[in-house]
Amino acid sequence: MARYDLIIFDFDGTLADSLTWFRTVLGDVVDKHGLPPIDDARAEALRDMPPKAIMNELGIPSWKIPFLANDVRSRAAENVDCIHLFEGIDTLIRQLSDAGVKLAVVSSNGETAVRAVLGEALCEKIDLFACGAALFGKASIFRKVIRKAGTTPDRTLSVGDEVRDIDAARETGCVAGAVNWGFATQGILDAQSPDVMFERPADIAAHSLDDARSARQAQQA
């Protein structure tokens, strides 16, 4: 029996390894938008900061965020061949869908790129897409997705890789899950005390599907 009616997934850093690709275009993005230089050490340090602290560190005014987001979305759509799903995500999505759990993807990335990276077969397993979300606007989208799915926050699990994903889950009242393989470091995620922390995709199935079969599959993955 499934523990949740709905699981809301973030995309970048949760389902897909966008960070590896983004590092290849970071220098160009920085130059285009007049940001201070970001070397490897500084980029790594930013992973240990919440979003607003990152904005302060780089001197990014709030009005510039939509322009940055649109630029990155456009670049992602043009480079979908360079963005790949994390190992185990394909199996996870199929397992959850086959168990009758509704799945949603809520992302600040564009739907074109999200669908292209997932591929047609996996997209058929996703019940709801809500893409192009504002950097700090996920909570309101979570509420809409939960209503469309016909369930309630307490029967919904949010899975993301950043502090803002945990914040959105808390604001919405759904279960806040975090993965340690994305953008934010384990340390900063732990500091937010998510309801559940996942170390690999198979752990999400083991947690969400409350039966012996899912536990066995998680151990074998």
Rank of each mutant, 00 (worst) to 15 (best):
V80Y: 13
D161A: 08
V80E: 12
A205L: 01
L92G: 11
N70T: 12
D210M: 05
G173F: 05
A53S: 14
V30L: 14
R75Y: 04
A43V: 03
P37S: 11
L118R: 04
L6P: 14
M197E: 11
N56E: 15
I141G: 10
A169E: 00
Q219Y: 07
A221I: 02
L58F: 07
L96N: 06
L15W: 09
A149T: 04
H84F: 02
H84T: 11
S107D: 06
F67V: 10
I60C: 11
G88Y: 01
L122K: 07
V179M: 04
I204S: 01
S107H: 10
E171Q: 12
V101A: 02
S107L: 05
E162S: 10
I188V: 09
D127W: 05
L46Y: 14
Q186M: 10
I60R: 05
C131F: 04
A76G: 02
I83S: 01
G160E: 04
G27D: 09
G88N: 06
R164V: 02
I141E: 15
D71P: 04
L58Q: 11
T151A: 02
S158D: 05
A191E: 06
V105Q: 01
D210L: 07
L122Y: 07
R213N: 14
A16M: 12
S158M: 13
A41M: 04
G173W: 01
D210Q: 03
S18K: 03
A133C: 13
I60H: 03
L189I: 15
K102R: 10
P50L: 04
F86C: 12
G173K: 07
D203L: 04
D10R: 02
G88S: 13
G182H: 00
S214M: 07
F67Q: 02
A104K: 00
N180G: 12
A53Y: 05
S214W: 01
G182K: 03
I65M: 15
T112E: 08
V72C: 10
A130T: 11
L68D: 09
R216K: 07
A176S: 05
A202C: 11
P201A: 00
R115P: 04
A45H: 10
K125H: 01
K144D: 15
L19V: 14
D190E: 13
F11I: 06
A178W: 00
D39N: 06
S193M: 15
D90T: 05
L103V: 03
L128H: 15
P51A: 15
C131A: 13
T91N: 09
C131V: 11
S193D: 14
T14R: 00
R73V: 09
L35N: 06
D127G: 11
E78R: 11
S214F: 04
D165Y: 08
A218H: 03
L189K: 03
S193A: 15
E44M: 10
I8A: 00
V175W: 03
D211H: 04
D5Y: 09
I188Q: 09
L122D: 14
W63A: 10
C123I: 08
I60Q: 09
E78Y: 01
F11P: 06
N56Q: 15
A168F: 10
P50D: 13
P37N: 09
K144M: 12
V159C: 05
A134D: 05
R47C: 15
G119S: 13
T156E: 02
L209S: 05
I60G: 00
M1C: 03
